[in-house]
Amino acid sequence: MKSAVWQNLDLAGRKLTPFLLSLVLVILNLVPLHLPSYAAISPNFALMAIYYWALHRPSLLPSGAVFIIGLLQDFMSGGPIGQNAAILVIVYIIAVSQTRFFYGKSFFVVWWGFMVVSLCVTTMGWVIASLLDASILAPEPAFYECAMTVAAYPIFGWLFVQVHRTLPQEG
C-alpha cells in the first residue's frame, strides 16, 4: 500500500519533470554569465525546452503549462506581460501539429525545424515589440538571439534526451 503511494508520487514527479525543468531553465536564463554582450543575445532556454517536449512528449507538457512558463519568462524579464506566453504557445501549437512530419526523422531535420520555428517567432516578437513601442525597432539583437538559440539547441537537445530517458514510457 505504502509503496504504491510512493510509486505514484514518483511517477507524478517524473511526469512533472518537463514542466519543472522548463521553469528552472527560465530562471537559469537570468543568471549573469559575465560575458561581454552576452546578456542581450543569450539563447532562449525556454524556447528550446518547449519545442523539444512538444515534439517528443506533448502529453507531459500541456498547453496550459507552456502558457505558465511563458508568463514566468515575461514577469522575470521585465518585458511586456503576455509576449513570451503568446510566443511559446504558438511554438507549441506549431510543434504539436507537426509531430507526424518529424516522426522518425533525424536530429538534423528536427534542428532545421527548430530553426524555422525560431525564425518565425523571432520575427513575431520583433513585430509585437515594435507595435507596442509604436516605432520600428532595430531587429538585429532579436536575430542574434535567435541565432544563439538555434546554435545552442544541440547542447540542450542532448540534455533533454538524457532527462527524457529517465521518464516513464507513454501509456
Partner: peptide, 16 residues
C-alpha cells in the same frame, strides 16, 4: 537516433 526517447512522439493527437 536509434534510442527510443529521441524519436518524435507518435501518440500525440495533433490538434485533434
Amino acid at each position: 537516433m536509434k534510442e527510443k526517447p529521441r524519436s518524435v512522439a507518435r501518440d500525440a493527437p495533433p490538434m485533434r
